[in-house]
């Protein structure tokens, strides 16, 4: 059974102008968010994005933007308590 998480929260965006269709984003995405259609990447399922940042970090053409972080309540609470960025240490 497929897991579904909150809708309309992901910060993922794709600049089709910059995309060369190399397809690396489809290789690194753990949730099959991207697909290559007529030599360009398209976002198939934005709600499946977990904002891990793998696509943006590996896009040599800076065509992908995402505010990346880990979806971990413990880390976020830790950050809140310390007034810092989310951390699990």
């Amino acid at each position: 059974m497929k897991h579904l998480y909150l809708k309309n929260v992901s910060t993922l965006s794709l600049d089709e102008e910059k995309c060369t269709g190399c397809g690396l984003c489809t290789s690194v995405c753990p949730h099959s968010v991207f697909e290559i259609r007529s030599s360009k990447a398209v976002i198939l399922d934005k709600d499946a994005c977990i904002e891990c940042g793998a696509c943006a970090k590996n896009c040599a053409f800076s065509a992908i933007r995402v505010v990346s972080g880990v979806g971990c309540a413990f880390a976020i609470l830790n950050g809140l308590l310390r007034g810092s960025a989310p951390t699990c240490d």
């Binding site: 979806g71 309540a73 880390a75």
Partner: peptide, 24 residues
């Protein structure tokens, strides 16, 4: 259950932030 988000493979950063903001 909220704490378990960190052990899953499909929860997004923005999603968990929203849950913490609204639920905590």
């Amino acid at each position: 259950a909220l704490n378990f988000t960190g052990s899953t493979t499909y929860t997004s950063f923005s999603g968990v932030k929203k849950e913490v903001r609204l639920g905590l």
